[in-house]
């Protein structure tokens, strides 16, 4: 019996499987990044790092629902780009394919922190354009196509590693954001970040999270992510990284069918432990086989009418 190949190449990076650790999960310490790779991830994306240390919002920062989803308003806590290279060094010296996530408030500051992140030796950058709950940061930058293009172009000019633009779903037209990032020179697009959401306690009559609004992640957002990946695939030429609600190999294959070249996994770690990566990696070839795909690559974009995928490299 042949077993479907699951290696992928994303923006010049070779990954042993398409499962990347999503930004913000297990990403503050180098040992955790290494731990996620050891558990089976194909590669890891760091916590989003900014120019200065940030404590993030006060607790409660998380509202967890029964496995279908989770609300968070962490507020981009991070040790700052001055301190963080020592964590990346731990992951890189262990041979972990590491993508550095960065955030900033405008194009110039994005270019600045991106340059310093690239200098750590990460294989690529992911720009967090889409954090929906950091006042004055993510959302405002990431929901305006013109600003997205400016930020991506500034970063692409400043660094020599591939740049992945992570876009927000909190917009009427995600495709416009994807096209803007592509025009700016992005090597790939990742979608989606969390959906703006709110939880209110009935007895207290107040929002649960200290910040009020938060971002929804987990199983509940998978169909939204799949739809946006689908639309991006129809409109863009660069590869797409699917993220949102992936818990099983079938979830990942659904993203692949919609057009995702690789996927990221976040919230599933909270409900299934870091062992979820090992389970996904071992399930994937079996499920691809059962569904009649010779490889992961063969599944990418396979649900689209042939015309849409013609001429693409995926």
């Amino acid at each position: 019996m042949t077993v479907a190949a699951v290696e992928v190449e994303l923006a010049g990076i070779r990954l042993r499987n398409p499962f990347l650790l999503a930004s913000g999960i297990w990403g503050e310490s180098g040992e955790s990044l290494k731990g996620a790779f050891d558990a089976g991830a194909g590669g890891v994306i760091t916590k989003s790092i900014g120019a200065e240390p940030r404590d993030g919002y006060p607790n409660p920062t998380i509202e967890a629902y029964d496995t279908w989803g989770m609300l968070n308003a962490m507020g981009l806590p991070n040790p700052g780009i001055e301190e963080y290279p020592r964590e990346i060094a731990v992951a890189l010296s262990a041979g972990v394919p590491t993508i550095g996530s960065v955030f900033a408030g405008d194009a110039d500051s994005f270019a600045d922190v991106a340059k310093r992140m690239a200098a750590t030796g990460v294989l690529a950058l992911e720009l967090n354009l889409s954090c929906p709950h950091a006042k004055g940061l993510g959302s405002e930058v990431g929901s305006d196509p013109a600003e997205v293009e400016r930020v991506v172009r500034a970063v692409v000019c400043a660094v020599s590693v591939p740049v992945i633009a992570k876009i927000t779903p909190n917009t009427a037209d995600p495709v416009a954001l994807g096209l803007a990032a592509e025009r700016g020179g992005a090597a790939a697009i990742s979608a989606i970040n969390t959906l703006r959401a709110l939880a209110i306690d009935l007895t207290l009559r107040r929002p649960v999270l200290a910040h009020g609004l938060g971002g929804l992640s987990g199983a509940a957002i998978k169909p939204v992510g799949v739809a946006i990946v689908w639309q991006l695939y129809e409109a863009l030429r660069i590869p797409i990284v699917g993220v949102g609600g992936i818990r099983t190999a079938d979830d990942a294959i659904e993203y692949a069918l919609a057009g995702a070249r690789a996927v990221e996994v976040g919230t599933a770690v909270a409900f299934g432990g870091i062992g979820v990566f090992g389970r996904l990696a071992s399930e994937l070839p079996l499920r691809l086989d059962a569904l009649g795909f010779s490889s992961w690559a063969a599944a990418v974009g396979a649900a689209h009418p042939r015309s849409a995928s013609a001429g693409r490299t995926a």
Binding site: G24, I25, W26, G27, E28, S29, E31, S32, G35, K47, G56, N59, T61, I62, A64, N72, M74, P77, G266, T267, V269, A270, F271, G273, I274
Partner: peptide, 17 residues
């Protein structure tokens, strides 16, 4: 601690959460 769910990495201690 922030999440208490083994996700956010706030409580990391060596390889442990």
């Amino acid at each position: 601690m922030k999440c208490a769910l083994g996700m956010c990495d706030a409580c990391s201690l060596g390889p442990y959460h």
